[in-house]
Amino acid sequence: MEALLLLLTPTVPTFFLMFLLVYLFAFFLVFRNWDPKHRREASSCFLSLSHGTPAVIMAVHALTRAPTPRSFASPNAAFQNVVLEFSTAYFLMDLLHYMVFFPNDILFISHHLATLYVFATCRFVVHHGAFAILVLLVLAEVTSSCQNVRSIASLRRADAPAAAKLYEFLSLPFYAFYSVVRGILGTLVVYKMGVFYASGAAAGNMIPKWAWVSWMVVIVAAILVSILWVLNLWMDWFRERSRRGQKKVK
Rank of each mutant, 00 (worst) to 15 (best):
C146W: 01
R239Y: 10
D236C: 06
K209N: 04
N232D: 04
V218L: 06
V213E: 00
L17G: 09
Y167C: 11
A66K: 02
A198I: 07
L95H: 01
G129Q: 07
D236F: 01
F174W: 02
L139Q: 10
A202D: 14
L8H: 12
C122V: 14
T143H: 03
L49H: 02
P69D: 04
E168A: 14
N104S: 09
L49P: 05
L5W: 00
A176T: 12
D159P: 00
L84I: 14
K165H: 08
F25L: 07
A160F: 00
H51I: 04
L185Y: 11
R239L: 12
R156S: 07
R243M: 08
T143P: 06
W229N: 15
F15T: 07
H51Y: 06
R123N: 15
R32I: 05
A42W: 03
L185N: 07
M1K: 00
I227M: 07
V56I: 02
S199R: 13
F79S: 04
C122Q: 14
V189Y: 12
A55H: 02
V190W: 05
A203N: 13
L21E: 04
N232H: 03
Y98T: 03
V12Y: 06
W212G: 07
K250Q: 14
S87G: 14
A222E: 12
T88P: 06
A201F: 12
R70M: 11
K209C: 08
L95K: 01
M193L: 13
V213N: 01
R243G: 08
L17M: 03
W237M: 04
L116S: 13
F31L: 07
F91T: 11
M99G: 00
V56G: 01
F25W: 06
G129D: 10
V220W: 10
R32W: 03
F28G: 05
S151D: 10
A66F: 03
R157A: 05
A153L: 01
D159S: 01
W237C: 02
P173S: 03
I106T: 04
R241F: 04
T187R: 14
V149Q: 00
S110H: 02
I106C: 00
V125R: 05
T115E: 09
T187V: 15
P10A: 05
Q147N: 10
P173K: 01
L116M: 11
L139I: 15
S214R: 02
R239S: 15
T187G: 15
A202H: 11
V118A: 14
A158H: 08
V217Y: 00
R156T: 03
A42K: 02
P54G: 01
V181A: 14
Y23E: 09
V138D: 02
F131Q: 08
F16V: 03
A132G: 14
H112R: 08
A176W: 05
L233G: 14
R40T: 13
S151T: 14
A42T: 06
S242E: 07
A203V: 08
T11K: 07
